[in-house]
Design a protein around this nucleic acid. Structure first.
Lengths: 120, 120
DNA sequence: GTTATTGTATTAAGCAATTAATACAATAAC
DNA sequence: GTTATTGTATTAATTGCTTAATACAATAAC
C-alpha cells in the first residue's frame, strides 16, 4: 500500500483520504501509534507541512490525537471507527445513486447493472 | 435546470460535465442548435472564455460541432449519444465499486446496501 | 536538569492552473 | 459589399496549492 496522487486534486486532500482509509480498514489499528509527521512525509514524498495539514484535518475529524512529544495516535474507539466506515460508504452510495439518477437510471436499473458486473 | 458549481473543481470541467449531461439526457436533442457561447456564459454567470473552453472539450469529444457564424450544434447521431450515456454510467459503476472495495465492501454487500435504499 | 524528539506555527517563494480582458477572424444576413 | 453575429486566439491577472525555510513548544528519555 504505497502513496500515489492524482494531480487533479490537492495532495493534502488525497492524503486525508488515504490516511482515513488506512484507519477505517485497520491498517492503523485503534489506539496504535502512527509514524511521525516527518517520517510519513518522507515516505509519501511530500513536504512535511503538507502531511501536517492532512494530520490536522484528521485530528479535526476526531480520528487521531497527538501527544506533544510522544507522537500521534489513532483514536482508541473501534465503534466510532466502524461508524465512520459506514458513513463513508453511505456517502458514496448517495453520490453514486444521485449521479446515476442524473443520467436517467432508476435504482432498479442500477442494481441490475451492478449484478451483471464481474467483481468480488 | 440551473447552473451551480462546487468550487472544488475547475468551473470549465463542471461545465463540460453538465453540458454533456444535458446532451445525453436529451435536453439538447441531437442536431439541435445550442445557444451562443456568450449567451450560455451569461446564463451560467461565467466568463465567455470559460464556456468556450468547455465547448472546445465537447467538440474534442465529438459531441458538438461549430459553424463559424451560424452557431454550434449537437451531433446528429442518436446512437453515439446513447453509447456515451452507457459509457458514462459504466465509468461511474467502476469507480463506485472500486471505492467501496477499498472500504472493504464486497459486491454482494454493496448490492444489499443499495436495495435497502429508498430511492426511485 | 539536559537533551533529543516530536508536534506546531509562521512567513514567503514558486508554480501551475483558472479566469478575465480584449482583440481578431469568418460568414450569414441584409 | 457592409454589418452584425458568432466562434477563436492571445495575453495578462488572479488564485490557490505546494514547497521551503525556520523557529518555537512540549515532554519523554536519560
Amino acid at each position: 500500500m504505497s502513496w500515489t496522487f492524482s494531480g487533479e486534486r490537492p495532495i493534502y486532500s488525497q492524503l486525508v483520504e488515504q490516511l482515513q482509509l488506512r484507519i477505517v480498514t485497520g491498517v492503523y489499528p485503534p489506539g496504535s501509534r502512527m509514524e511521525t509527521v516527518r517520517e510519513l512525509a518522507n515516505e509519501a514524498a511530500v513536504n512535511p507541512n503538507t502531511m501536517q495539514r492532512a494530520m490536522s484535518e484528521l485530528e479535526r475529524r476526531g480520528l487521531v490525537f497527538s501527544q506533544r512529544t510522544a507522537g500521534r495516535f489513532v483514536t482508541d474507539d473501534p465503534e466510532s471507527i466502524a461508524a465512520l466506515r459506514a458513513e463513508l460508504a453511505q456517502e458514496k452510495i448517495d453520490r453514486f445513486l444521485g449521479e446515476m439518477r442524473k443520467l436517467g437510471y432508476e435504482k432498479r436499473e442500477v442494481v441490475a447493472l451492478l449484478e451483471r458486473e464481474e467483481r468480488t
